[in-house]
Amino acid sequence: MTHTIEKSQADTPGPETQAMLEVQGLNGWYGESHVLHDVNLTVNKGEVVTLLGRNGAGKTTTLKAIMGLLKSRSGSIRFNGTELIDLPARDIARLGIGYVPDDRGIFGSLSVLENLLLPPKVADGGFDLPAIYELFPNLEERLDSYGNKLSGGEQQMLSIARILRTGALFVLMDEPTEGLAPVIIHQIGHTVRRLKKAGFTILLVEQNFHFARELADRHYIVQEGKVVDQFRNDEIADNLEKIQGYLGI
C-alpha cells in the first residue's frame, strides 16, 4: 500500500523548503486498540508545526510513535531521510530528536542540575549552561532542588531546557502550556520563538489554539487518529469557524 500526502496549497514545498520529518501512512496501536489510522504529515526545516485536536484525538500517540515510544506502529516516518519506523527510541533520539512529553518527564529524585545534565549530547552546537540559564533564569536559582519540588511551570521549563543542551535541532513538544498560568504560558511562547530563530524545528501539540496560532507556521487537525485537515497560519482567519468546529471551541 502506498500513501500520498495530500498536498494542499498549504505545504507545496518551494525550492527553499526541505522536509525534515515526513510521516506517511502511520498506524499505531495500544495493544489491540488501533489508535492511529494512516497519519500523514510533514515538517519542514525551521518550521513550527502544530497538531491540533480534541481530547483523545491521537496527538500524543502520534508524537510517541515518532519518538519510538509506541511499541506497535507501522507505516513510514522519515527523519532527514532516515527511516525511523523500526528503530528503538534511543536510536531515534541519537539522530537529533528531542522530546518534551505531556507529563514533562522530570525525574523527581534527581536534582534540577542532574535533570539538566542527564540527556547525552547527540550533536554539536547545543546550548551551554549559561545560555540555558539566560533563557530560564528561575532554573539557575533552583539547581539543587529535586525535580519533584518544582512548580508545574518550572518543570516545563526544565523539560525544554534539558533538550536544548543535547544539540537536537528537532523538538517534539506535547502541550507545553497545559495547566500553566498565563505569565508562564507567555514565557514559553517567548522561548519557542527564540528557538525558532535559533534554527530549531518544532512539532508542537496544543489544545490552546490561541497560543498555537501566535507561534506556528502551519497546523494539522487531528481527529480520531487521522489528520483530517491542515492550514497555513495565514489561512486561519478565513477558516476560523471551520477550525473552531474541529476543535469544539
Binding site: 519510538g68 515510544l69 527510541a89 533520539a93 522530546y99 518527564g105 525525574f107 534527581l110 540527556p119
Partner: peptide
C-alpha cells in the same frame, strides 16, 4: 556520578531515559 544519575532516572522512568538516547 553521571552514570548513577542515569540509573536513578531509569529506575523512575525508563521510557523517558531511552527517549534521551540512553541504552536502558
Amino acid at each position: 556520578t553521571r552514570l548513577g544519575s542515569y540509573l536513578r532516572a531509569a529506575t523512575e522512568n525508563p521510557e523517558m531515559v531511552s527517549a534521551f538516547g540512553i541504552n536502558v
